[in-house]
Design a protein around this nucleic acid. Structure first.
Lengths: 210, 210
DNA sequence: TCCATTAACTAACAAAAGTCAAGTAGATTC
DNA sequence: GAATCTACTTGACTTTTGTTAGTTAATGGA
């Protein structure tokens, strides 16, 4: 059985693998029926890890190593633009998966970093191991295709909103759909994620709450 | 052997199936090696069709019937916003595939219309038939996964650009990457696709060419 | 051929968002 | 507890984009 790895730190960890993998299996079960064999495969190949706040777990200019399932915590994807400013392109929280999808799937170099915004409990799997378990289990394969499609749908939605909504409408939408993000993620990341400057978001927030 | 169907019109058609499918097979071959069996499968299941300018070939509130390969012509995806205005979310041209991807894959209702901007020569395939040939040929399956990944990559790129570039930068980028679109697609569609008003695009064009 | 319709451009003004510079409040550190 | 430091806010100003309305050019149908 795995132990929870806390990378680059010597602090003790009280989170148990059983808890994490069970949460994951519950999530999968909401969508796909799993056999005992499927469950055993997941337990064998998904590795539980615990990271502290602000840890960068995938680096730009490298091939993303893992697909992550988020048990707890907040993650972001960001890169640097021509001026050297950080641009946050994704923010996610439980329950869900996280990685630089197209680069992970194709195993190509990504220009994005994956960073833990808060402390994060994650389950991770490499591309090789994912291919391994999807070839062994058609249920897991179906679920993995579903996850991939979710990412496609997400990006279609995101580009539609960025193309047609005003900064204020985009913020209001985030307030409705992910109020938790507002309480757990720095405003500056949220502004960048919503495609506006931090000052603009500040003004919008004041106007709304006034 | 198929005949080229020209739907809803009685005009004669001089495009041959052989030409269309050969262009398609050449395109696939740039990426995936096909056996004679694979080629026979494609010829059997991809149906050549010819549509006139402005024809809507997939309608909103319905499940998209086909995935299209574009042999010639320009297509767009559009929907209506709260004010009843058209919003163009995608424009594409040969060589490439076209559909409302996430709804086609999941066979769910789409709120988008697929419209031929110009006369279009297309090859189309239903979801059932696509599943059929991908189950019979692993090469075709690989290629089909590649096509969907392209769509994911495309949407990631698009949302990044809409989130971080100014209207002028977005137009300049389109000028560089798809100058042909500017000559074949109405300005109003392009403006909407780039997330700006037609008047803004007009100003930008004057400023650039002045 | 003429009329009606539409697409594209223009201009003047309004609103939204960015820029720059300064200020505040809350943490953190020594 | 004073001094930093950082994230966030604020205000004045600029630039970009949207709005409205009018003009021109091209298009298609009767």
């Amino acid at each position: 059985m795995h132990e929870v790895k806390e990378i680059g730190q010597d602090e003790e960890c009280f989170f148990t693998f059983v808890t994490m993998i069970d949460k994951f299996l519950n999530f999968v079960a909401t969508r796909t029926a799993l056999t005992d064999t499927d469950i055993a495969l997941c337990k064998k190949y998904f590795e539980p890890v615990l990271f502290p706040k602000n840890r960068i777990i995938e680096e730009q200019d490298k091939v993303p190593k893992y697909l992550y399932y988020i048990v707890s915590g907040y993650l972001r994807l960001f890169h640097y633009n021509q001026n050297g400013d950080e641009v946050t392109t994704h923010i996610n929280c439980p329950p869900g998966f996280f990685t630089s999808y197209s680069n992970f799937i194709n195993q190509t170099k990504s220009d994005e970093n994956v960073e833990c915004i808060t402390e994060c409990e994650l389950l991770r799997i490499t591309k090789n191991d994912l291919d391994e378990i999807t070839s062994k289990s058609s249920s897991i394969k179906d679920f993995s295709i579903f996850v991939f499609q979710q990412s496609l749908t997400y990006n279609e939605k995101r580009s539609r909103e960025l193309g047609t909504l005003s900064a204020e409408q985009r913020y209001r939408k985030l307030m409705e759909e992910h109020p938790d993000i507002l309480h757990n993620v720095p405003i500056s990341y949220i502004a960048s994620f919503l495609g506006m400057k931090a000052e603009s978001l500040s003004r919008i927030r004041r106007k709304i709450t006034n």
